[in-house]
Design a protein around this nucleic acid. Structure first.
Length: 284
DNA sequence: TAAATTTGACCGTC
DNA sequence: GACGGTCAAATTTA
């Protein structure tokens, strides 16, 4: 799969996105007609990067089955279900909603667990729907005179994990951060250096004790503030509060939940802060 | 030609 | 009746 070749860690799930999990018990879906899905939602915010295709491949094979214009949303919402829905009775679905505020960001909501045998890392990985959207995006961007700041912003990553209602502590075992994606993490009002959280593991990982502190309400963690860019710097946050307030939780399992990887395909490059990005021809 | 996508219609919920 | 989610026929793609 192409994205594996651009992955720092070589993970087939390499994605440079903000992934947040929501531990959500869906008590409302009692429709008779509609399939009852497992009661968890895994919501992801994907930031597509210029020149990165397949950044949003979660390793599963999805088939698009619908698209709807959503009230108040600029972009339509796409509906996907597992390719092996019929073959293996896998009822996992996901919804992909392009962000109004930042078209390079896709909000992806996973519903239902994958019950198919397709492991993410062994997936045949046909062009995922996101890939195709990514291609469209990239095509679009290629026709824009993207400003340096926009470029830089494309290499951002921000992540928040909500452990509210975190009955399922499994999230800790499946949730990993790459050490290269950000330099610090914020837990509510506290900033934690990543180095304090991630030890020898090259990919970094949350310890259960970190992810699952007290069971107080709204005890979310955010790995947002430090937006490492490909130029080796830290960007100032330019996200709106709505970006920050995307609270998601996951009631997930280590086996079925797409593993979070925040990989960047471009190696960090040391560039002087005063580097003239506006030099003609530097950005094409 | 099989598989995937598109898209209008249908259905359930609010 | 509006809206979101799903179905399924038509169309496109590999």
């Amino acid at each position: 799969m192409p994205e594996s070749s651009i992955s720092v860690a070589g993970s087939p799930q390499s994605e440079d996105f903000e992934r947040v999990f929501k531990d959500h018990v869906d008590h409302n879906d009692v429709s008779k007609k509609r399939k009852l899905l497992p009661t968890w939602i895994d919501q992801v915010r994907v930031c597509l990067e210029n020149g990165l295709e397949g950044t949003n491949d979660d390793g599963y094979s999805w088939r698009k089955y619908g698209q709807k214009d959503i009230l108040g949303a600029t972009y339509p919402r796409s509906y996907y279900r597992c390719t092996y829905r019929s073959l293996q009775s896998c009822w996992a679905t996901k919804q992909v909603q392009r962000s109004d505020e930042d078209p390079t960001i896709f909000d992806i909501t996973y519903k239902g667990k994958h019950t198919c045998n397709q492991a993410p890392h062994t997936a045949p990985a046909p062009a995922s729907p996101e890939k195709q959207e990514t291609k469209q995006i990239n095509h679009h961007i290629s026709h824009q005179q993207q400003q340096p700041n926009e470029l830089l912003l494309n290499y951002r990553t921000n992540l928040r994990v909500n452990t509210e209602d975190l009955d399922n502590k499994e999230i800790a075992s499946s949730f990993t951060f790459p050490s290269t994606s950000f330099g610090c993490m914020k837990s509510e009002n506290q900033i934690f250096p990543v180095s304090a959280l991630i030890n020898d593991n090259p990919m970094g990982s949350f310890s259960p004790s970190f992810l699952s502190p007290a069971t107080s309400e709204s005890n979310y963690y955010s790995a947002y503030a430090c937006q490492m860019n490909s130029f080796g710097g830290v960007l100032n946050s330019q996200h709106s509060e709505s970006d920050l307030t995307e609270i998601i939780s996951a009631n997930t399992s280590a086996t079925n939940s797409p593993i979070v990887n925040l990989d960047f395909s471009i190696d960090p490059v040391e560039i002087h802060p005063n580097f003239p990005f506006d030099t003609p021809g530097f950005f094409n």
